[in-house]
Amino acid sequence: MTAALRFDPIRLPEHCQKLRADVRAFLAEEIAAGHFTPEREGGSAELARDFAKRVAARGWIGMTWPKQYGGQERSFLERYVVTEEMRVANAPVRHFFVADRQSGPTIIRYGSEKIKADILPRIIRGEISFCIGMSEPDSGSDLFAAKTRATRTDGGWSVNGTKIWTSNANVSDYMIGLFRTSPSTKENRRHGLTSFLVDMKTPGIACNPIGQMSGQREFNEVVFDNAFIPDDHVLGEIDGAWKQATSELAYERSGPERFLETYAVLTELVRAVGPNPDIRAAEGIGRLVAQLHTLRRMSVSVAGMLAAGREPVVEAAIVKDMGTLWEQQLPHRARELAAFADPESSNHAAFDECLTFNLKIAPKLTIQGGTTEVLRGIIARGLGLR
């Protein structure tokens, strides 16, 4: 079936600009207090938890969610502004970001009332964090090839298998995991997958670190050995989670985080070339800014579609594909443009430090959240090309 592909030219309303000013002021206070440094990545899990509590106190976690669970029923465009400012400032959002972006909305849509009443208010207060259990060693971004099995047992399910590239699983309280509950069929290879809410403190779950060039502890291998999940932690339809996973990924793939992860390099590049760059540097920076603006307009458009209750799966895949390619190439392009900048009259040392780190994280960007190859398959199917 061919999707109706479109990016509506949405403009952020005035109240979003007021919110932007509030978020910028908050972040400036956080930086001035020494809670985080925009030029540096990472920080401890404790720092991220403390930051989440202060963001929660401003009402900026779960802000689009129903009021009955502690949310404010604000718009996706307002959430977009908060996310954008947090990412540009390189704020330590990892404790709450996945829960706010997609785990909470998934629970709102598919969780039992008991689970909603327990989990959602704690996310909103910045108390708990989530990871995503989708990719596996032999399937990667091909989610429908997942083999980690959940088998029925007394009062619930016993899970055995392995998830991989699971970001921040080692510091997460919960996972939303995609497990096989029945074999796929010849007619429908997507059949047989079920989504579960997993307490990461459950006996039988082990998180093994995966080393990264950057030195960060982010990716993990998560091994399940007869881990028990109660019946009331099933999210949605048994054997039918493929219907849920596609809409969940629309949240994951379309936000500004999909093109702003290496944004600090652009900022440092502008400082490095100074107020009077040569024609080559000026033209190169102009192109990068124009490309960034285009990606931003597309991403805002997807936020508008989500606000209207639509599921822009193909549009989100396009934003993720183009955005991660752009942010992956940005450090390399910045290095070329800064090559002739005078190191004595600029912040070349700060630029070099920033560049070194971002060159190390760049290779992962077109893998996390779905590989480029898988995304292009989704796009081709949506355009009726396969």
Rank of each mutant, 00 (worst) to 15 (best):
I123H: 00
N208M: 12
D232G: 00
E218P: 00
S139A: 15
F179L: 13
S184L: 02
F224R: 01
S129H: 01
S129I: 03
I210K: 12
R152F: 03
D138Y: 10
E187C: 01
L178I: 13
S172Q: 05
A146R: 10
S172A: 13
N160D: 10
M175Q: 06
S135E: 11
P203A: 13
H233L: 00
G204A: 09
G155S: 09
W165L: 14
G236C: 03
I123S: 01
S167V: 05
N208L: 15
L193P: 00
I164W: 07
E187G: 08
V198N: 00
Y174T: 11
P183Q: 04
I229G: 01
T151W: 02
D231K: 00
G156A: 05
S129A: 12
I205E: 03
T194R: 02
D138R: 15
K186R: 14
A227P: 02
S167N: 12
F144R: 09
I205V: 01
T185W: 04
R152P: 04
S172F: 04
P121C: 07
Q216F: 12
G215Q: 07
T194Y: 10
H233R: 05
D173H: 14
L235V: 12
N208C: 08
I164K: 09
D199L: 07
G204S: 09
N226V: 02
I119F: 12
D199T: 04
M213P: 11
S158T: 10
R122D: 04
M134T: 15
K186T: 12
D173Y: 03
S172L: 06
N160I: 02
E187A: 14
G204C: 10
S139F: 11
E221P: 00
W165V: 00
I176T: 10
G126N: 09
R189I: 15
L193N: 03
G215I: 08
P209Q: 04
L197Q: 07
S214F: 04
L120M: 08
S158Q: 05
N188R: 12
I124E: 03
I128N: 01
D118K: 14
A169E: 02
S141L: 08
T181H: 02
A145I: 06
C131L: 08
G236E: 01
G126V: 06
T148F: 00
K163F: 07
A145H: 14
I128W: 07
E127D: 11
P203S: 10
I229M: 01
S184D: 12
A169H: 03
D154Q: 14
A117Q: 06
V222N: 06
D154A: 14
M175F: 09
Q212V: 12
V222T: 05
V222Q: 02
V198R: 00
V223A: 01
S195Q: 11
N170L: 13
S141C: 06
G126E: 06
R122L: 06
D199G: 08
G204D: 05
R190I: 04
C131E: 09
K147P: 03
Y174L: 09
F224D: 00
R125N: 01
F144A: 09
C207M: 14
R152S: 11
A117K: 08
R190C: 11
M213N: 14
H233Y: 11
G133Q: 08
G236L: 06
G177Y: 01
M200G: 02
I132H: 10
Y174G: 06
G156D: 05
S195T: 13
P203T: 12
F196A: 07
P230I: 11
L193H: 09
P203M: 11
F219A: 15
E218K: 15
K201L: 09
S172K: 02
G177I: 05
E221N: 11
T181I: 10
A146E: 08
